[in-house]
Design a binder for these strands. Sequence first.
DNA 1: ACGGCATGTCCAA
DNA 2: TGGACCTGCCGTG
Length: 333
Amino acid sequence: MPEGHSVHRIARQFDRNFVARQVAASSPQGRFAEGASLLNGRVATEVRAVGKQMFLAFDDDLWLRVHLGMYGAWDFAGEILVDPTIASANGRMGQTNQRGTELGDERVMDAAGENSLTSIGAPRRTRVHVRMSEQTKGLADEGTEWPPPVVGQVRLRLLTDITCADLRGPTACEVQSPDEMLATLAGLGPDPLVGDPAEGEERFTAVVRRKPTPIGLLLMNQSVVSGIGNVYRAELLYRARQNPHTPGREVPEEVVRGIWRDWVRLLQIGVATGQMMTMDDLDPEAYRKAMASRDDRHWVYHRAGLPCRVCGTAIVVEEAAARKLYWCPYCQA
DNA sequence: ACGGCATGTCCAA
DNA sequence: TGGACCTGCCGTG
C-alpha cells in the first residue's frame, strides 16, 4: 500500500545492494518464471523510481518493471548496505508495518518499526533478520540459512552473493524492452524526485489548469502527477485549504503551484523518514502527541466524523472513484 | 478464528 | 460501475 515515498526508498536499497552486481533471479511461486529466467545471471545496472513504479535495469538492455499496488512488498534479507539518505533499512519495504531487528552493529530496531532509526552514519554492512508475521516467525531466529528459505508466495526472488530481495503480491511485475520502458515512463506525470522540480511544476500546473476534472481526482491520476495516493491526496488538499470538487481549471494558479511545491516537500520528508508525515508544521510536542496514536497522524485522512483540528467541523468522507476522500467542508469550502 | 478493510490499478460490461 | 487481483492487519467475538 505504498505511495511514492516508499518506492523511492526501495529503489535506493536496490541502488546500494543490487546495482553493479550479478543477480540470480527466480520465481519460487512460478508466476514469473519466464521473466525470472530472462533476468537470471545478468548484472543489474541502474534503478529508477518514478511515482509508484520501480524500474531495475539489467545488462544488455532489459528492464524489470514493478508496481506494488495495494498489497505488494519487498522483503530484504541477508547483508544489506544501508542507504545513508533514508532513515533506516530494515527488512520489509512497501507494507506499512515494518519490523525487523538489525544485528551486527549498534543499531537495533524497536517495535515501533521503520521510523525508530533516525541517526544515519556512513553506510555499513548490516545483517538483517526479518520477522514480519506469524508465518515467518521462527525463521528469523535461525538466521544463518543462505539463501533464506522461501516463505509464502514469492513472485520474484533476486539474489546477489550476500543480499536477498523477495517480491510478493505486486500488481505489476514484468520484463520490458527499452522502448516499452520508455512508453511506460511517457505515461507518467512529473515526480518531484525525478528531473528538475521546477519543470515538473510547469507540467503539473499546465495540465491541471486545463482540465474540467475535479482537483481531487487529478491528484490521484498518475499521468498528471506521479506518486500521490489516497493519503497524500487528502492531506495535500487540506493543507492547501482546497475543495476537492473544484475543477482543475478553476483552481487558482498559485494554489496549483502551491500544491506541487507542497508535494515536493512531503515526498522528500516521506523518503527520508519512511513515514507519511503531513503535519510537519506542528511544534515538536504536538507532533509527538499526534504520532503516539495511529489515527492521529493526519489532518483529515481517516478522520471521518472527527472534529477538524483547526475549525472543529466534522470531517466528511465520500466515495470518489472507488476511493475514500476525506476533507473538511469548512476549511476547504 | 474470522471478517472487514486498506496507502492501487486494470478491465469487462 | 463493479469485480478482480492479492496480502496483512486490526477489531470483534
